[in-house]
Design a protein around this nucleic acid. Structure first.
Lengths: 112, 112
DNA sequence: ATCCTATTTCGATGGATGTCGAAATAGCAG
DNA sequence: CTGCTATTTCGACATCCATCGAAATAGGAT
């Protein structure tokens, strides 16, 4: 995973509203949630929500699918897994119990 | 982990410069790196680096310790572990292989 | 065709960010 | 005390961000 991509995804999740939206989508599972449902749940302006969803979408963290007039949003688990992998492997070296276990870590930890 | 804290930490890592600095500190291990070493490595203005370090510090992602005239910076592994835990447990429910395995996940995934 | 619901785009606004150079501070060495 | 090195604070600037309401668009129902 490229550091720039990781940073952009982290930035997308680094806003309370977006993080809560994203979490709601993850918890919703494969069925996802429609934009309107999210809007009702969080009580923010539709335009604001649309703006945040666009951000999550263009960073690859969610996907969308039209279903009649509604737009269903779903979390992209693969992206999250990749991001967690980046943090665990590239960043969480020999410190506290980060147990993702790519052996790459140790060699990097002793690099210049 | 509170969603607001997680968002603030994610935001702190959501910038290429800061993420690279943070990664360098993790890789440096328990010895850490002095501010000046980081500055030399990344070639940015001292004031800019100081600004970024302050951000990482106030979000609890790094710690600093004076050593004569130098300021040694170290990654706070516990914080990173907590953040990864948040992402894995609170966000990465039953999707692709997120293997952090707190049983909390499943019950949340079926919450309203 | 017309209406209705769902969502996005537009324009605006206040505030935060990233960056720099210059000046100020902190701590050690003579 | 004076000078030297390391780091922070200050002021400035351009850019991006979060938010809103209003208007525009998309798609189905009557």
């Amino acid at each position: 995973m490229d550091v720039e991509i990781a940073a952009r995804q982290l930035e997308a999740l680094g806003n309370v509203t977006r993080l809560e939206v994203y979490r709601a989508l993850v918890r919703a599972g494969p069925d996802g949630l429609a934009v309107g449902q999210l809007q009702a749940r969080f009580g923010i302006a539709g335009s604001t929500l649309s703006h945040h969803l666009k951000r999550l979408l263009e960073r690859g963290l969610i996907s969308q699918e039209r279903q009649a007039t509604s737009l269903i949003c779903r979390a992209n688990y693969k992206a999250m897994d990749g991001l967690i992998g980046f943090l665990a492997d590239e960043c969480c070296a020999d410190g506290a119990g980060a147990t993702r276990g790519s052996p790459r870590v140790r060699s990097l930890a002793s690099a210049p």
